[in-house]
Amino acid sequence: MSDRSAQQRQADYFGQEHVTVIEPHGSVFDLKLRELWSYRDLIVLFVRRDFVAQYKQTILGPAWHLIQPLLTTVMFTIVFGKIAQLSTDGVPPFLFYMAGTVIWTYFANVLTATSGTFTTNSHIFGKVYFPRLAIPVATLFSKLIAFAIQYVFFLGFLAWYFFDGAAVQPNAWVLLTPVLLLMMAATGFSGGIIISAMTTRYRDLTVLVSFGVQLLMYATPIIYPVSSLPEKWQFWVSLNPIAPIVEAFRYAYLGQGTLDLPMLGVSGLVILVLLIVGTVMFNAIERTFMDTV
């Protein structure tokens, strides 16, 4: 409160609109979205940089966005479908794995890229100010472009199988896709932000991230349907906030599995908590992390 009045006093003092006050402590819940908006051009350019620079001096260029999920899906189909013969609830294994891989990849990419926000950009952060949030937000979008490419690719395969008479039933829940995507983005984003804030102090976590993401994939129903698990394990999988999202995604497009709306609601709440924790940590670290990097 004293903060507010002090700011008011300063504004009176200068009597002008564009006033910046630099103080030791800012509000931990304030994401300064208005300021972020004024830097929207920068976000666009960061997205462009991430996307363009990634494939310079590669032969296949953006085609890699298709090759990666395709090879993963083929490998899953062979290893888990043909060799291990895991159940896919009657859905063609190829589509089953592809649906899981496509939405999982978006989450994993966002989480991994966001978790390096402070450490990989410290050379820029140490020299110039702009809303630090611009970097993870740009990541969110550049990974979304990659997702869009893979998503269209997936839809192509889905149509192929559908008209070929395979046992898939895309249904009206497809309209839920943006919500599911938003939930995935929010989870990856806040998880990444939390890790990123902690890596400024504990570098151990950078090692943990790629490994952790891999482990998390096995704890998420990507290569198996939840229904194939024994009763007592289903409860544990449902604790994973992204499990219901993946299940819902697959239900909408393939008609397989369960669409558990209450569980989806619970995972929404968990994600909200993560987002708040992430915001608080980000704001706390953002102001002084240059002193510890």
Partner: peptide
């Protein structure tokens, strides 16, 4: 660094009028 908002001060205040 404090003036250009790269790191926060431990105490005190800076007020800037205009784009920096």
């Amino acid at each position: 660094k404090i003036l250009s908002r790269i790191t926060a001060p431990s105490a005190g205040r800076i007020t800037l009028k205009g784009r920096v």
